Amino acid sequence: MKQPILGKISPIIPAGSDMEKAIAFYEQQLGFTTIYQEGEPVTMAIVKRDSVEIFLQKNDDKYLAEWTTFRIQVDGIEQLYQELQTNGGQMIHPNGFLEIKPWGTKEFAILDMAGVCITFYESVANGI
């Protein structure tokens, strides 16, 4: 019998009440491309960069957004960090600057327009 294999994850996250502003942030600041929009005005959008897809859902619950967080594995973490710095760098989390963590990753965190925290990480230790 074939064993199941998990693939990529596509989170659905709160994007705030201004979807146009949220989409522009993901495109212009983080380098994503919008591959789908729903509603008039837009209530949901899918943005993609490489193999990462994020579903942006119109939702202005600030509490929900500030407690939403996820991690994205990256090859070339230093280059991505530099790219985001070049794009303004304001999105870098105040406590999330690029550093090596004790659990064997080099990582940094950003806050999107709604307050969602996204950590980008790259393994630096064997076996992680």
Rank of each mutant, 00 (worst) to 15 (best):
M91R: 02
E27F: 01
F25G: 05
I5K: 13
Q57R: 10
A65R: 05
G31N: 05
R49P: 10
Y81M: 10
R71A: 13
A22Y: 00
Q82P: 02
P94N: 05
F108P: 05
Q3S: 08
D50Q: 13
I110H: 02
M91Y: 10
S51F: 12
L80D: 02
T105G: 01
E78T: 10
T69I: 05
E122T: 13
T34S: 03
T34F: 01
Y63I: 13
T105R: 07
G127R: 05
A22P: 01
Y26M: 09
F120N: 04
V52N: 04
G16R: 01
L80P: 03
I9W: 07
T68L: 08
T86V: 13
K21I: 04
A45Q: 09
G127T: 06
Q82Y: 07
Y36F: 14
D112L: 00
A15T: 01
L30S: 06
G88F: 11
A114M: 08
F55S: 12
C117H: 08
P4W: 03
M44N: 05
A65L: 07
L98G: 10
L64Y: 12
F32L: 01
I110A: 03
Q28K: 15
I54A: 04
I128V: 15
Q3V: 06
L30H: 06
F97G: 10
L64A: 14
P4H: 04
A65V: 11
I110N: 02
